[in-house]
Amino acid sequence: MKNIISILLFMTGLSLSAQVGINTNSPKAKLDVNGDVNLRNKVVVLNVTDNSLSQGNNDQLLVSQGEGYPPIWKSLRIPEYEPNKFYLIFNNSFSDRTGVKFSDSEQSTISGRNLAFSKGASITSLPGFKKITGLTQDLSIFSDNSKTYFQFETVVQANLPSNGTTDISIDYACGIFVDDKLVNLRQRNLKASSASSTFITHNQIGVISNLSKGDHKVSVACSRLGSYRTASNVVLAIGTYAADNINSFITQSSLKVDVYEIPQVFNSITN
């Protein structure tokens, strides 16, 4: 009976007082407990949608919704990883409508391309390359065992004249860089055709294994390598347009990045 009366008095005091402190003389909430709390039975939360009391489910956490809102139960979803298997850890895609343009005077001065275009080459050693600004993005690697896939797509156009032969053309190259180091490169040739202002779709897929753990920056840069029988006013446009028979929506660039890793810290799988 004494215990019942004590509990009733405590609850009465709690309802009448704005703030009650246990082991503290300056409570900062309606009930402020300064010390350990041992719950031997259950915790229930008011469900404001139907005014019911919810005990939550197994493995759920009590999560705050911010000041003025009651907490709610939420499931913590941590993926379970099996050892020695790759999992998709990062996946994102980016786009850019600005692109890059090259006049006939902005042609690359690279000589010995077979030596210059090698894995790990610094972008500073490749004169004439311009970055497509909107495709420069950050990514993070968390494991020593990873594979990072890149898929780059854009449209390349030049204001070439209509020509029935293919002896008027421009060589160009686009590279994918990680931390300004070349990891993938494609060279192509844009040829004049029977229609003026020829344009083509450029697709490029690359992969790099075992980037170092930590933060990295991926970027895409392109260059005008060589021109054959072109006039001085011919502009090469990559990810943008050189003539108004197409527009920036058609020529926009995109980059997709997927990172697969073998997690080094994982939860064991149970049946």
Rank of each mutant, 00 (worst) to 15 (best):
I110M: 04
S253G: 03
N91I: 04
T154W: 00
V45L: 15
N57L: 12
I262C: 03
A18G: 12
K213W: 00
V63T: 09
S15R: 09
I205W: 08
G175H: 10
Y260W: 13
S26H: 07
L126G: 12
V44P: 00
D32R: 07
D180R: 01
A195W: 01
R186M: 09
Y69S: 15
E80I: 04
I205H: 08
N47H: 05
F199N: 14
S193E: 09
S108A: 02
D59T: 13
N210F: 04
I78D: 05
N91S: 15
K191T: 10
F86N: 11
I110K: 02
N23D: 15
I123P: 08
S212F: 03
T154Q: 04
D244V: 06
T136G: 04
Q204A: 05
V207K: 14
Q187C: 08
N41F: 03
G128K: 01
A221S: 12
E261D: 10
F117Y: 15
A231Q: 13
P79L: 05
C174I: 07
V257G: 10
S140D: 14
S103E: 11
G66Y: 08
I132W: 00
S212I: 03
M1Q: 06
S253N: 08
K131M: 07
D215H: 08
N58K: 11
F102K: 06
Q107S: 07
